[in-house]
Amino acid sequence: MTPIITAFERSPDGGKGLARDTRVRWALEEVGQPYEVRLVSFHAMKAPAHLSLQPFGQIPTYEEDDLVLFETGAIILHIAERHAGLLPNDGNARARAITWMFAALNTVEPPILELSTAKFQEGDKPWAQERLPLIMDRIRHRLDQLSARLGDADWLDGAFSAGDLLMVSVLLRLRPSGLLDAFPKLVAYVARGEARPAYQQAFAAQLAVFTGKSSAG
């Protein structure tokens, strides 16, 4: 069965590749796995049919035969374990790549998401202007640590892996804030990720949804 993923019918990011289905699209493109997309509206995301796939009413979901998955990291790990190209063959290197997947989602992304929440959902609160600098300091601290670990390497641990795919995806969320600009090694790292043909295909597919063109993978 060709995998089916769900995506926003109308992505709130305006087709900028920040919606999480882009991450899954990228992984599928990297391993050369065709896929289909079922677009869901915000209303449909809260309906029983979608909640049976994703109990929290979010996207993306992943369906393959009798397997249904949700949570982007879990979906990408499944893809990486089932297909060659996103995890090393060596056991230790494989474990390290998975560690970087968790680091991207559990260590680097949370303060970045907190920044978005503080700006766009809590910006009118009386304490918002005091809180924002604290969040940005936490983000800069993480970026400083990540930049030091990356050094002059192209990727986080040898060859490109699912860890890099998720880390680049997370860092892309910082572009509107300008915070990433102070870390040239990370800027170059993100640019390398964006330059990969598989990313270009995934980005184009997500953008096509916003522009009303075909979204098939």
Rank of each mutant, 00 (worst) to 15 (best):
M1C: 05
T6F: 13
T6M: 11
G14T: 14
R20S: 12
T22C: 05
T22F: 00
V24R: 04
R25I: 00
R25M: 03
Y35N: 02
Y35C: 00
Y35W: 02
E36S: 13
H43N: 13
M45R: 15
A47V: 06
P48C: 12
A49R: 14
H50W: 12
L51W: 12
L51E: 04
S52W: 06
S52G: 15
L53D: 05
P55E: 14
G57M: 10
E64L: 09
E71L: 03
E71A: 04
G73N: 11
A74G: 11
I76D: 01
H83C: 00
A84M: 05
A84Q: 09
G85I: 00
N89I: 00
D90Y: 00
N92E: 09
A93Y: 04
R96F: 05
A97W: 00
T99L: 06
M101D: 02
F102D: 06
V108N: 08
P111E: 05
L113C: 07
T117G: 05
K119C: 09
Q121G: 03
D124K: 15
P126M: 06
W127T: 15
E130S: 13
P133R: 12
I135E: 07
M136F: 01
R138I: 03
R140A: 13
R149G: 06
G151D: 07
D154Y: 02
D157K: 06
A159S: 11
S161A: 05
L171P: 09
L174T: 14
S177F: 15
L179M: 04
L180P: 03
F183V: 08
A191T: 10
R192Y: 08
E194S: 07
A195D: 12
A195R: 14
A195V: 11
A195C: 08
A202Y: 05
